[in-house]
Amino acid sequence: MTLLAEQLLNGLQLGVMLFLMAAGLTLVFGIMGLINLAHGSFFMIGAFAAAWVANRTGSFLLALPAGLAASAASGVVVEIAVIRHLYARSHMDQVLATFGLIMFFDELMAILFGRTPLLASVPRFLGGSVDIVPGVPYPVFRLAIIVVGIAVAVALWWLIGRTRLGMLVRAGATNRDMVRALGVDIALLYTAVFGLGAMLAGLAGLLTGPLLSVQVGMGDSILITTFVVIVVGGVGSVRGALAGAMLVGMVDTLARAYLPTLLQGMMQASTADQLAGGLSSMAVFILMAVVLLVRPRGLFPAHG
């Protein structure tokens, strides 16, 4: 029972992380119609920048803005240099060009920081653990991630639903030509949205840094899980991204936690371990297949 509470929180934390990734990706797709493989690169850039600054200065409060700024800046530069020429192109062209961007950024990070993982430590004031229920300690840092994620979700809801910028974003998603005809600088709007998405990915990256290792290619595997989130939630919808992220985060965490014991009851230990290892890393994909069978357009389709 205590294990379950802990695993549920872990699932929530992974879900929050996935939401930070998926929100930007799905906004960019919903508004600009662009599929961006290089989204994982911004995750990586945020993590590297923050870890580097933290190691240099020893201060997480400096590392946080550094990671955010680095990922947002690289997002803006990439949008202006490459991405904006891709909006009118086919999805295949977009995939290919952003695949090229991944190669570039992975190698750039390898040249700048080397192939050995960078050490990122949990900031001291968020170290240690607290009892979530008496007798069940849980790391403060993971709790902080969950809080940050919920805050970002609320902020996004406010930004998109309650501000002028959000109104333009929603209008742009519905009919971009009309918005342009009304005199809105749509290019600037697109750059801003792309930069915001990149910054959220960077935030996810710098928060993940102390939990996993900060290394080249760290954005790639989370990118693919993020795709699963988006397909499950419904492409282009932020609400769907939130629901999909929570679902995928829970399923992944719980499968990894409980499948081995579950299967050990049914077969001999070594076979069970192997099978559980394979099945638990496949669990989110199986979830996706099931969702597709029932609702081909995802749980919360963006339009209609």
């Binding site: 490459v82 020429h85 891709l86 192109r89 062209d93 290919l96 060009a97 695949f99 090229g100 961007l101 991944i102 190669m103 570039f104 950024f105 992975d106 190698e107 750039l108 040249i111």
Partner: peptide
């Protein structure tokens, strides 16, 4: 070599 091949790809697409 990927730092060269990546931009080449982007160029080819564009």
């Amino acid at each position: 070599w990927m730092i060269v091949l990546g931009p080449i790809l982007v160029g080819v697409v564009l």
